[in-house]
Amino acid sequence: MALYKLFHYELLTAKRSLHECLYPIMVFGLIVTLFPLSVSTDPKTLSMIAPGVVWVGVLLACLLSMDRLFREDWESGFLDRMLLSSQSLSVLILIKLLAHWVVLGLPLILVAPLLGLFLHLTYQAELALVVSLLLGTPILMLIGAMGVALTLGLRNQGLLLMILVIPFFIPVLIFGSSAVGSANQQLSVTGQYGFLAGLLLLSLCFVPWTIAGILRIGVAN
């Protein structure tokens, strides 16, 4: 019950500041727009670079949206309440991340095929894009949350978060963009899905627990 309430509360706060939830989507759209302008408008070239461009766009948009993950809770003291709660901290964090993913991750996944269309992705590639994003964005958010917990309340938090977290995003980026790329060339993509699903399970097992450990150290205080 308490878990459901937390989930509901998170969605409610997101609803109250709806425009903020749109920022990552705008960033995503703008990043993708830059590439045809800077590389080439040739449909063939665009369709070749599209998997990487869309995935990098999603990655950066996710990273930028992570910034506010624990910030407001920390400033309002809600984080301390979570630390003192009788519920397991890692489960609470998992619920928070789930809400965060629903509010900020899902819209990105919905917008991605549209941007893929602008970059001349094939139908199979669009499908692969959606599936790989469904598997991949939760991993990005889990790893990103780890970085946020480590840098909470530090000066230059945004930049520091990027420096710390981007190296850990590399495997997800590799498998995600190669899934889309393979589908674009009508190749099988089950292998990439398998790897992404494996990474997702691995991070689901270990990351909430690690975040709880980091928050208990109290970098923020």
Partner: peptide, 25 residues
């Protein structure tokens, strides 16, 4: 890059005790 990120985090946290634990993690 991992080394650089580690050094960046370490120099960003001013509280030594917290910084030690965070960087060990």
């Amino acid at each position: 890059f991992l080394y650089l990120g580690f050094i960046a985090l370490q120099s960003a946290i001013t509280d030594r005790q917290v910084g030690d634990k965070a960087s060990a993690i």
